[in-house]
Design a binder for these strands. Structure first.
Lengths: 338, 338
DNA sequence: CTGAAAGCGCTTACAG
DNA sequence: CTGAAAGCGCTTACAG
């Protein structure tokens, strides 16, 4: 295949390459006749602009980086899918960058990423969305970024929030309305600020019913299946066993279900279980998990879209939006039987 | 931040930019003294070569595309993780390209991808690894590619194979050795050639024991959880119920477990279940699934590594390697009780 | 062993 | 409305 460049097109259309460039970028100041002639040439030669050359001239890479450190593969896939869609809409590429928060020095790692890949912008997912050090670094380096689901860190930047506290409040209220009073809670990873947010919702709902939070009913998990197992044992083997467990993600909730099976506790008859996230496993196990569905794809799509807009109009205002989660009732929760 | 380019380095080190370029690319013909001077300048200025400029000059993008259409998110994540590692080792970037085999015209889609992103190479995962049309297109376009887990399509190219037939044979033999004779099978998606390969292993193992394959024990799934559910109902509600079900991936096996629970069939006491892939769900449900672990990350890592080598030495021979799967026994299979 | 020139395919000022 | 020149940051021939 002979290379088709802006020069071939210019020659073919009998205009200068600058004019071709103008048509390419939908700039004004081209006569309709010329524009059509050039577009005709595009078609006839099957011309595709070379993004690398364009990137060099613009000093842009048209690449967005996506930073994550999350144990949930389904979460990551959903994040990617939303980010990818937003990139494709605007002719950007997506670079994925898994990275351990507690691994090698974070800032060094990101510094290398940014300078070797010349990212135009970066989208932060939990737990990075709340990482002050990182956000500060990006700010001083003047690298555009957007945050997905930040919780604790207030920051003037594109922020697409979820309302974890409200969602956890709703799911706890569901359990309360089913007659449960002894409701245990399994916390997530301490590095993720959603952990506290979800716990707050649980505490708030109990508080409104005048129910005290019992420390033996609160276990420290870390969002992993394994931690859910340990937490479930600790909770279910305590002398006063709860009638419901609210695990702050679905993996841990699935682990509670496993432990319950092993202890021959029937779910939901003898134990109600609720999760969070609506991960695939929530509907792939039996009984299916009552949980909160977060619009993860939509949130990431929005974050990346706003990020790209920002890159192209740096003066624009930073936007903060909240996307609500949705309660999904499945078979793992039921009315308390006395 | 002032931009640090090859020119700044050259000025700082008191040499020409060509010499800097030579040091950068580890070319010979530079005196040790000069080389050190330049490297010193790299450090002092904290110089990072601009890959876009390099790409333009080389007519290279240093980007590898990863093509997939797979219902299993965990499979995709594992593929990505292996590919990413290989790319990072060699300073390439990874572009992910989910794509529906039966969606918009495949070749058009890939044509657009290749020409807009200027991929240097592309790694094909199932079901694309066996897609003759696609492989032919890449060949005529002279785009380097590597195939992960191809089965049916013979092709002179980098191919990292798994041995699905052998693995399915082993898992069927395990069930047979546990005393099972009535073993049902759930097939995968007809577009994936692993589907037939796995079925072949099942047929072979039964054949060696003189057991006929009963058509009512073979269900047509498509690798999705939902298809597993339908298949499980069909099989378990038949008049002569099997004592074991071998589903050709773990999602479908998990669905069999769900249906068994709903029918109050105890697993593994009354029904043994085996899966394939060792997806996370295999150990996240209870009882855990007996399955085959494939070294997916290693396979993809190897494929991408060889692909990048090939890009840099187009004359090199194409390599074909086979990676074996490993049988993992968990709680979902047990000795047949009469 | 080292460098000046030209070029990769596009764009941004600047002219007209 | 259109174009000739210079440049993005690097590399590939070609000289010396």
């Amino acid at each position: 295949m002979e290379k088709v460049t802006i020069n071939s097109v210019a020659k073919h259309a009998g205009v200068s390459k600058k004019t071709v460039s103008r048509v390419l970028n939908n700039e004004p100041n081209v006569s309709d006749a010329t524009r059509e002639k050039v577009q005709q040439a595009f078609k006839e030669l099957n011309y595709r602009p070379n993004p690398i050359a364009r990137g060099l001239a613009h000093n842009r890479s048209f690449i967005i980086g996506c930073l994550y450190d999350n144990p949930s593969k389904s979460y990551i896939t959903r994040v990617q899918s939303g980010a990818l869609e937003a990139c494709q809409d605007r002719n950007y590429n997506l670079l994925i960058h898994p990275c351990e928060l507690r691994g090698e020095p974070l800032i060094d790692n990101i510094e290398t990423l940014v300078s070797t890949s010349r990212l135009d912008g970066i989208v932060l997912t939990p737990p990075f969305s709340d990482n002050k050090e990182l956000v500060d670094y990006l700010k001083t380096r003047n690298i555009p970024y957007a945050r997905v689901a930040p919780v604790t860190l207030e920051d003037e930047s594109i922020s697409i929030k979820s309302n974890d506290t409200q969602a956890a409040y709703e799911i706890t209220n569901l359990l309360l309305s089913l007659g449960h009073k002894e409701i245990a809670f399994i916390k997530g990873h301490p590095d993720h600020s959603a952990t506290e947010a979800r716990f707050d919702g649980y505490v708030k709902a109990l508080g409104e019913q005048g129910i005290a939070v019992k420390s033996e009913f609160v276990a420290e998990g870390n969002f992993s299946y394994h931690s859910g197992e340990d937490s479930a044992r600790q909770i279910l083997e305590s002398t006063t066993r709860p009638s419901a467990v609210f695990a702050s993600n679905d993996y841990m909730a699935a682990a509670v279900l496993k432990v319950a099976s092993q202890m021959s506790l029937k779910v939901p008859e003898e134990l109600s279980i609720a999760g969070f996230d609506n991960a695939p496993i929530a509907r792939h196990i039996w009984p299916g998990l009552t949980t909160i569905a977060q619009p993860v794809e939509d949130m990431t799509f929005r974050a990346v879209t706003l990020l790209i807009d920002k890159i192209n109009a740096p003066e624009s205002d930073d936007i903060e939006e909240v996307f609500a989660g949705k309660l999904i009732e499945r078979e793992s929760t039921a009315q308390l039987i006395n």
